[in-house]
Nucleic acid binder design. Structure first.
Length: 739
DNA sequence: CAGTGAGCGAGCTTCCGCTTGACTT
């Protein structure tokens, strides 16, 4: 949804008169402006009645959402206009400013906060003295201390923010139209979404190319207490291949060898009822630090995984806890805890688990390079409060996660011992070595409070010594298959973006929604993200024509350059000119690249994939993204824009949402072989059953009832199968009529 | 994202980053 920008006042004008009296602060009192209204009451309480505290509600102004918003010829000038909401905010603040003795800008301590402060001055035009203060957390010492540490707005930081804003605008508003021209109307490109899409699409190609390897292994259950399962690791000194030894093509990558099934069977037969000798016992210290206190990406991931909700809902849950004052600021990239919070978390741990549960020197956590660090980690505001009455179960669960994670972060490492035992057996003239490993945790430390699905599960190993012989309780051959890399979920995608420093805590959830518009989807009840055919086509196009602009490192390079702007070592114009016009060490010039692609790239050369040849006609079958049709604002389409299969002269539509990794030549042939007018599967009740292929995929029809057919069932679809689908559809329709 | 299934017509789409509401069920 695009934001309207206007500086004309609208509605609530009639009430502004009466509001002004109520709103105006104490005469002669300084006006303090923060970004978020939920900070207002706390800061008000700290400052007392001598100050008026108000909020800007985030950004109040923006550059226009139009391609011509930036005047390149005029040194990349891009005027900021009040947004619709910003105009209302500014109107209210001007009233608050009447009679104020001074204006104190207390927006967040980061680049965007500096820009908001700057824009407030630009649009409020105060006649009183203006100063800028920052505080890391809303505590009395920090806030009062900040008042003693006034500064002016940093114009370089503002310039860095402006550079970021304009660069993103140029990128998005110049590259998107190339997609409309070369791929399909309505599509979008941008600094954050390009690499995010790449992650999802690359993973899909990996899965498509993945060749599972089938291999067998031998496992021996040993008569120990607790029972130990030892795995065959080598035969006659040659390593036996296991899942980690195979690459994505199903080949063995290292020196190991696939175990021959006959060898395995012979070995099992020989070992049955026998024993293994302990060849070596190796003990290593096991240590795991606590996880860092929550930053937005970690917390969203954990909520999405544990509560099975989308990232937007996850973000809303945290926001609501914050708005009620239960947790600190919910959008942060900084895992650091304040000194007070650290002490409070330690005190809670000591009270619950004793003095030994915290390290002598408090654990400290640091933000990654490039992080904005305007806030501390997400933590309970009152550390001793373990649960809060009156919350919904979802809110309570999120609060408890935050509480646990915070306390755990201040506790001692989990330590223990990892024991690895090698067993040997000489059977039938062959030397078989087995291995078993186990971990015992002696000091659980932080694990007492916070557990994570990725935590190691303790697996105590029975005590054995070198030279011991151990009876084999049972022995067997196991057949295993390697698995392709997992698809991303919103949770893991957000984590990956955060690791690359791409996107900001305030935008992760909306980035997911933006990508779901055209580029990715998930099946009902499944969180795995699949790229659409459009998404695969767009990424393919971008990777081919603008390889530097799908790079995971572009954002971090941009951040380095913005840092130079912030320190005064580079000008906005120099940075943007390099980015758009001339190119420099960090990026090729965007505009010439676009001109080249416009002139040289033929949309006809953009198959998504050549699936292979039709076994009968010999023609190649090609999957293509939809034609360059536009889409009306209200959703009605100009052209179908749907992807299609091309086989000779014939075009067959395919759903944008198919399982691309599994989409095979056989499936494509089955689709292409369905005639345009449909295939008659036979008659039932005097009327024929028809199989057709439409733009939402294949479907069958009988007596006006239509039911869709999964792509992988087209080849084998017959009269009985079609009637079955039609019947199911009929009863689904009937149920719907009832309710 | 349930459950659709045209083939005309010639003007729309788009970025990232701050922050809450005012809608309905």
């Amino acid at each position: 949804m695009s934001r309207q920008t206007t500086s004309t006042p609208s509605r609530s004008t009639s009430t502004s008169g009466s509001r002004s009296a109520a709103r105006r602060g104490a005469p002669g009192a300084p006006l303090v402006i923060v970004e978020s209204p939920s900070k207002v009451s706390t800061i008000s309480r700290i400052l007392g009645s001598g100050y008026t505290v108000r909020a800007s509600y985030g950004h109040i102004a923006d550059i226009a959402a139009r391609t011509d918003a930036v005047d390149v010829a005029d040194g990349f000038a891009a005027p900021y206009h009040l947004t619709k909401k910003g105009a209302e905010v500014v109107r209210g603040l001007s009233i608050d400013l009447v009679g104020a003795s001074e204006l104190i800008l207390a927006t967040d301590d980061d680049r965007e906060g500096e820009m908001i402060a700057h824009l407030l001055v630009e649009f409020l035009r105060p006649a009183v003295p203006v100063s800028r203060i920052v505080f890391g957390s809303i505590t009395e010492p920090e806030v009062l201390g900040a008042l003693e540490d006034r500064r002016s707005i940093d114009p370089r930081l503002v310039e860095a923010a402006r550079s970021r804003r304009i660069l993103d605008h140029l990128w998005g508003f110049r590259m998107s139209p190339v997609l409309w021209e070369k791929v399909r109307g309505g599509l979008s490109a941008g600094r954050v979404q390009n690499p995010a899409l790449r992650l999802v699409v690359d993973r899909e190609w990996e899965r498509r190319a993945f060749v599972p390897a089938v291999y067998c292994g031998v496992e021996a259950r040993l008569a120990l207490d607790p029972e130990v399962v030892a795995t065959l690791v080598s035969l006659d000194g040659v390593a036996v291949a296991s899942s980690k030894d195979f690459d994505d093509a199903g080949r063995i990558a290292g020196d190991s060898r696939r175990l021959d099934p006959d060898d395995a069977a012979a070995l099992v037969a020989a070992l049955e009822g026998g024993e293994l000798t302990v060849e070596s016992v190796k003990k290593e210290k096991y240590t795991r630090r606590p996880r860092r206190p929550y930053v937005t990406s970690d917390l969203l991931s954990d909520i999405v995984n544990r509560l099975k909700v989308g990232s937007a809902r996850a973000q809303a849950l945290v926001n609501q806890l914050y708005e009620k004052g239960h947790v600190t600021y919910p959008r942060t990239d900084n895992p650091a805890l304040s000194r007070e919070a650290t002490a409070a978390a330690r005190a809670v741990a000591v009270e619950l688990f004793g003095a030994d549960s915290v390290p002598a020197k408090p654990n400290r956590w640091f933000a990654k390079k490039g992080a904005q660090q305007a806030h501390e980690a997400i933590r309970p505001t009152r550390m001793s409060v373990r649960s809060i009455r009156g919350l919904t179960p979802a809110h309570a669960a999120v609060y408890e996660m935050i509480w646990r994670r915070t306390i755990a972060s201040q506790m001692v490492d989990a330590t223990g011992t990892t024991t690895s035992v090698v067993f040997v057996a000489e059977v039938g003239g062959r030397t078989a070595r087995f291995r078993a490993a186990g971990t015992t945790i002696e000091v659980p430390g932080h694990r007492l409070v916070f557990s994570h699905p990725d935590d190691d599960v303790p697996t105590p190993l029975a005590s054995v010594s070198e030279g011991d012989t151990v009876a084999i309780a049972s022995c067997g051959v196991g057949e295993h298959t390697t698995r392709p890399p997992a698809r991303y979920t919103e949770s893991s995608l957000i984590t990956a973006l955060e690791e690359h420093g791409i996107g900001r805590p305030s935008t992760y959830a909306s980035t997911m929604e933006a990508l779901r518009r055209e580029y990715m989807w998930s099946r009902r009840g499944d969180r795995a993200l699949l790229p659409t055919i459009t998404g695969i086509a767009v990424h393919g196009f971008l990777a081919l024509c603008f390889p530097e602009y799908v790079d995971f490192e572009v954002t971090s390079r941009m951040e380095d350059r913005l840092e130079k702007v912030a320190t005064g070592d580079e000008s906005l114009e120099h940075l943007l000119s390099g980015f758009l016009l001339e190119g420099d060490g960090d990026w090729p010039a965007l505009e010439p690249a676009i001109a080249r692609v416009r002139a040289e790239h033929d949309p006809a050369d953009r198959p998504v994939v050549v699936l292979g040849e039709h076994p009968v006609t010999g023609e190649s079958i090609i999957l293509r993204a939809g034609k360059t049709f536009g889409r009306r604002a209200k959703g009605a389409k100009w052209g179908s824009g749907a992807p299609y299969l091309k086989c000779g002269e014939r075009n067959v539509p395919v759903s944008d949402r198919i399982d691309f990794a599994a989409f095979s030549l056989e499936q494509a042939v089955a689709l292409v072989d369905v005639p345009r007018e449909g295939r008659d599967l036979g008659a039932h009740d005097g009327e024929s059953v028809l199989l057709k292929v439409g733009r939402f995929g294949p479907w069958v029809e009988h007596r006006g009832v239509r039911a869709s057919v999964p792509v992988d069932e087209v080849a084998s679809m017959n009269l009985a199968g079609a009637l079955d689908r039609v019947d199911k559809r009929k009863s689904a329709l009937a149920r719907r009529v009832q309710s």
